[in-house]
Amino acid sequence: MTTLVWDYKQEYENEREDILDAVDTVFRSGQLVFGPSVQGFEEEYAAYHGMRHCVSNDNGTNAIVLGLRAIGVKPGDEVITVSNTAAPTVIAIDQIGAIPVFVDINPDDYLMNTDLVEAAITERTTCIVPVHLYGQCVNLEPLKALAAKHNLTIFEDCAQSHGAKQNGVLAGTTGKAAAFSFYPTKVLGAYGDGGATITNDDEVAGNLRRLRYYGMEKQYYVVETPGHNSRLDAVHAEILRRKLTRFDGYLAARRQVAARYYEALADTDLVLPKITEGNDHVYYLYVVRHPKREQILERLLGYDIQLNVSYRWPCHTMTGFAKLGYEKGSLPVTEQLADEIFSLPMYASLDEGTQDKVISALREVLRTL
């Protein structure tokens, strides 16, 4: 059997009875759209973060699209973010007519280099989108200072950082609002697509609720502001409610997997993930680095191990974003890392035997490069 970077089947076996009960609960409720499961999840997810509002929707991309619209980002506004991210971060900015502006990343934690942000601010800049990538947080303190100085809004992309903390503060609770994805691979994942935006701002929350439901609020078919059809299915909401009760266990299991990697690979020439001071890493991905990545990945296939690269193609190099005008070499750290990083298997239900298979094969490949 091929070893993959992520697999949900063991988790499903472990939780099958509860997952099927969640599905049955929704199907018997008579409310497949919105209803008590969606409301319950929103209240519980907001409470987990100590926030006033959680507005769920159909996927993490729309959580950003609706979130940016809800906080007032308009067509033509510039939004500062990074190119080393999943393309949906940038797609969402582009989709509302705003202009993505990229800054480079740190060479050690692969997160936004906040020292470069102020130089990227222009009179058209209205928002900063820090991407809390791979499971740990961008340094938000300098961004808060810049936002106050230049009258900007911080919108956090937390698709990969459920439960991560910086100096004890949960990801998603510092900016004006924050977007989460519940795609199945995520630290908190549904059994299909899902997303949500959290905020303490009542007006933003109201905007979000209208935008996800065609722009309606008080009466069906009465559109107040043209919006989207972007609702979280009740069955996924109910599954997420159940999984939220086990969430701390998922985090502990991921950290245990990471600890075994650190111990087993410390004496190799792989560059292992660095935890930035003050961060509590949740290891959505366990990203390592090596200049001979392609040789390593190719040879691991011989051991029936298939690994991923997040991300092989930085957004500024994609033809879809050529209109932004970034030339090769414009983000040197991002581009170098794109040639060297890859991810080891990482999920809460990863068993030690499978992990040992990966470690053993990787050590052998590295030894014989």
Results as ranks from 00 to 15, higher is better:
residue 57 N to W: 00
residue 277 E to R: 14
residue 230 S to C: 14
residue 160 Q to D: 15
residue 27 F to E: 14
residue 202 D to E: 10
residue 201 D to H: 05
residue 305 I to C: 03
residue 77 D to I: 06
residue 247 F to D: 03
residue 92 A to M: 04
residue 336 Q to A: 08
residue 225 T to F: 05
residue 47 A to K: 13
residue 151 N to S: 15
residue 137 C to N: 10
residue 137 C to F: 00
residue 259 A to Q: 13
residue 308 N to F: 02
residue 269 D to Q: 09
residue 89 T to M: 12
residue 36 P to T: 10
residue 222 V to Q: 14
residue 263 E to T: 10
residue 277 E to Q: 15
residue 96 I to E: 07
residue 345 P to C: 03
residue 353 G to P: 00
residue 310 S to A: 15
residue 70 A to D: 07
residue 68 L to H: 02
residue 125 T to S: 09
residue 284 Y to V: 00
residue 36 P to E: 12
residue 122 T to G: 05
residue 12 Y to D: 12
residue 101 V to R: 13
residue 53 H to N: 03
residue 265 L to W: 07
residue 132 H to N: 10
residue 293 R to E: 09
residue 41 F to M: 12
residue 292 K to I: 00
residue 100 P to S: 08
residue 18 D to P: 00
residue 174 T to W: 02
residue 127 C to V: 12
residue 262 Y to E: 12
residue 126 T to Q: 08
residue 83 S to K: 10
residue 212 R to V: 13
residue 65 V to W: 09
residue 256 Q to M: 07
residue 112 M to Q: 05
residue 266 A to M: 09
residue 17 E to R: 14
residue 102 F to C: 13
residue 121 I to S: 02
residue 115 D to A: 14
residue 363 R to D: 01
residue 165 K to L: 13
residue 341 I to A: 05
residue 139 N to F: 01
residue 151 N to K: 15
residue 298 E to K: 11
residue 246 R to I: 00
residue 10 Q to S: 11
residue 75 P to T: 08
residue 346 M to N: 04
residue 323 K to R: 15
residue 117 V to Y: 02
residue 228 H to R: 12
residue 146 L to H: 02
residue 256 Q to A: 15
residue 270 L to E: 07
residue 31 Q to K: 09
residue 358 V to P: 08
residue 302 G to L: 10
residue 141 E to L: 09
residue 234 A to H: 10
residue 326 Y to P: 04
residue 196 A to I: 11
residue 337 L to T: 01
residue 27 F to T: 12
residue 315 C to D: 14
residue 93 I to D: 02
residue 239 I to K: 07
residue 341 I to S: 06
residue 29 S to W: 01
residue 220 Y to L: 07
residue 234 A to W: 09
residue 124 R to D: 12
residue 1 M to T: 11
residue 195 G to C: 10
residue 304 D to N: 15
residue 256 Q to W: 06
residue 329 G to I: 02
residue 270 L to D: 08
residue 99 I to E: 11
residue 280 D to V: 15
residue 224 E to M: 08
residue 285 L to A: 04
residue 74 K to N: 14
residue 289 R to C: 11
residue 326 Y to S: 02
residue 267 D to M: 02
